[in-house]
Each structure stands twice: as structure tokens, then as C-alpha cells.
């Protein structure tokens, strides 16, 4: 792997982790987006990128040109992009809803789903 690519991915991952570990709910969601992009790149980079030729079989041919790019990681990453997109769409709305319900944006204080326990054995009861 080209060292420069690795360096760029490292920075993106580190920033993504920093954002995800932030106490602010919006930064957390943006961090998910950054971490998602970086992860896609790791998968992509792991499969020896290099060839410029797309993995498309030319008209009349029955197989890929030898120098074509590897289609397998592309398929994986394509799926990951689509699912990551859906996840972020959901997370954005969930975050907004929780922030409004809780009246503040500190993720560690948004505990509506996991209220503190009052019984030594039984789980806490969710308040409606």
C-alpha cells in the first residue's frame, strides 16, 4: 500500500474516532460519517488498487481485461456506501429527536432509553 494513502486514511480514522468519542451528539454522527468513509477506503485499499481501467467487460469481449480493477472490493464498498448512507439518515433524525427530548446534546446524559436502575435484580422501567 502506498504510504501516503495509508497516512491519509490514518488521519481520517483518527479524526473519525475523536469525533465519535465526542460528548456532542451532532459531532458523534458526523464522526460516524467520517469513520464510514475511512473504513470504506481501508477495504478498498486492502485489495491492491492501481488499475485505472474500470471492471466493465467491453462490448464483444467475454472477460475482463487483465489490467482491470478488482471488482470484488468495489462491490463490497458499494454496498457499504449505500448502507452507511441509510444509517446516517436514521442517526441524524434519531439524534435530533433525542436531543429535543432530553433538552440537551450531551450523549452521556441522553439516557431516556436506559434509565438508572432502582432494583438490585429487575431492569429499570421505561417511563413513557
Amino acid at each position: 500500500m502506498s504510504l501516503i494513502l495509508m497516512l491519509a486514511i490514518s488521519i481520517a480514522v483518527a479524526v473519525g474516532v475523536l469525533l465519535v468519542l465526542s460528548r456532542d451528539v451532532f459531532r458523534l454522527i458526523v464522526g460516524l460519517a467520517v469513520l464510514g468513509s475511512a473504513t470504506n477506503l481501508i477495504v478498498f485499499a486492502a485489495a491492491r488498487p492501481g488499475g485505472l481501467i474500470p471492471a466493465v467487460i467491453e462490448a464483444g469481449a467475454t472477460q475482463l481485461p487483465a489490467a482491470a480493477a478488482n471488482p470484488l472490493p468495489q462491490a463490497l464498498v458499494l454496498t457499504a456506501i449505500v448502507i452507511g448512507f441509510a444509517l446516517l439518515c436514521f442517526a441524524l433524525v434519531l439524534g435530533a429527536y433525542l436531543a429535543r427530548q432530553g433538552g440537551q446534546q450531551n450523549v452521556d446524559r441522553l439516557t431516556a432509553a436506559e434509565p438508572a436502575a432502582t432494583d438490585p435484580v429487575k431492569p429499570p422501567v421505561l417511563e413513557q
Binding site: L5, L41, F44, P49, G50, G51, L52, I53, P54, A55, A68, A69, Q74, V77, L78, I81
Partner: peptide
Amino acid sequence: VLFLFAGAPDL
């Protein structure tokens, strides 16, 4: 951009 120049225009 990286995908574009690594043979993955679809991505």
C-alpha cells in the same frame, strides 16, 4: 476522487 482514479467510477 480516489475511487475515480482507481478504476471504480461506479463507486
